[in-house]
């Protein structure tokens, strides 16, 4: 009962504290708002860069050409062998007839030439289109595919893919590093601003101690106050992120450059970003005020 009363008082007093020290609270809230906006921007950028990289990587396919005179049984055997390899995500069969008709559809010149062919005369090779799980070992997988009986040539854009993968790896690391660095800077900036806010209330803490408030009793209202500041500071960044990203997404119709390169879908992405922003705000708010109060409790 007593604990409950102290808690509810802390709840109320913390709110009073925010408004009674409004200019300082405002400083803290603005600091949180600005830093969280930057964090949000970096989260959006890095998520999209990652997403684009993943989409491009997903698009990379190994084409395994089968022998021209392969029988149906042999074709199925090859499929089984392929599936036995690790790092295989998806396999799709494309018969030479399908390839031929696709080519005919794509150009009239091809159509003129190829219309004369019978099934036996078709010189094209049936293929397996293989997608890998881990693009970094695509070369190894390609080599393994080559060793399978009745598989002739194997192509996946050698050289180009490896380069792409290494560039993406760097881009990913840079964007992750930026986000982490920004979050650390944010934590540091906000805790310090809140510390200054609380320092100016040294006297309040001194009086609380004097009239017999326990350390916990003193900490709890400030903890709540930090929490409120964190939440209030997160509001604008969350709303801004929602609006700006939704508008951006709609404007590009979710696409950039091409069909393949899509922006991250707003749901649930925006919810996760908002959650992260809110959590950072709350956590950092409480951390800052706790650190500041602790200084005056001589623990």
């Amino acid at each position: 009962m007593k604990t409950l009363r102290i808690l509810s008082r802390s709840f109320r007093d913390a709110l009073k504290g925010v408004f009674r020290n409004f200019s300082l609270s405002l400083a803290s809230i603005s600091c949180i708002t600005i830093t969280l906006l930057v964090v949000s921007l970096s989260l959006i950028l890095s998520s999209n860069v990652n997403n684009i990289a993943s989409l491009i990587e997903e698009d990379v396919t190994i084409v395994a050409f089968l022998d021209v005179d392969i029988t149906e049984d042999e074709t199925n055997k090859v499929l089984e062998d392929i599936k036995k390899l690790d790092n295989i995500d998806d396999v799709e069969f494309q018969s030479k007839t399908e390839i031929a008709s696709e080519m005919k559809d794509s150009s009239e010149v091809y159509a003129n030439i190829m219309n004369g062919w019978t099934e036996e005369e078709n010189p094209l090779q049936s293929t397996y289109l293989v997608k890998v799980k881990n693009i970094e070992s695509i070369g190894k997988t390609a080599n393994e595919l080559k060793k399978i009986e009745h598989v002739g040539t194997v192509k996946y854009g050698e050289g180009m893919v490896e380069q792409l993968v290494s560039v993406f790896k760097i881009v990913r690391n840079i964007s992750l590093g930026t986000v982490v660095a920004l979050i650390i800077v944010t934590v540091f900036l906000i805790t310090n601003t809140i510390k200054i806010t609380i320092y100016s209330r040294k006297r309040e803490i001194e009086i609380m101690r004097l009239v017999g408030a326990s350390n916990l009793n003193i900490k709890i209202p400030f903890l709540f106050e930090g929490l409120y500041l964190g939440i209030m500071g997160a509001i604008i960044p969350i709303v801004a992120t929602f609006y700006a990203y939704s508008i951006l997404y709609e404007k590009f119709d979710g696409k950039m450059f091409s069909e393949f390169i899509r922006l991250v879908n707003p749901t649930p992405f925006l919810y996760s970003v908002s959650g992260v922003l809110l959590l950072i705000g709350m956590f950092v708010g409480m951390l800052g005020s706790l650190q500041a109060v602790r200084k005056y409790l001589k623990i």
């Binding site: 007593k2 008082r9 009086i207 609380m208 017999g212 003193i218």
Partner: peptide, 17 residues
């Protein structure tokens, strides 16, 4: 920033009265 009443009440509030 607190009234006379609040200043005095403060000493009891922190005790959970």
């Amino acid at each position: 920033k607190s009234t006379v009443y609040e200043n005095v009440a403060f000493a009891l509030e922190v005790l959970g009265t």
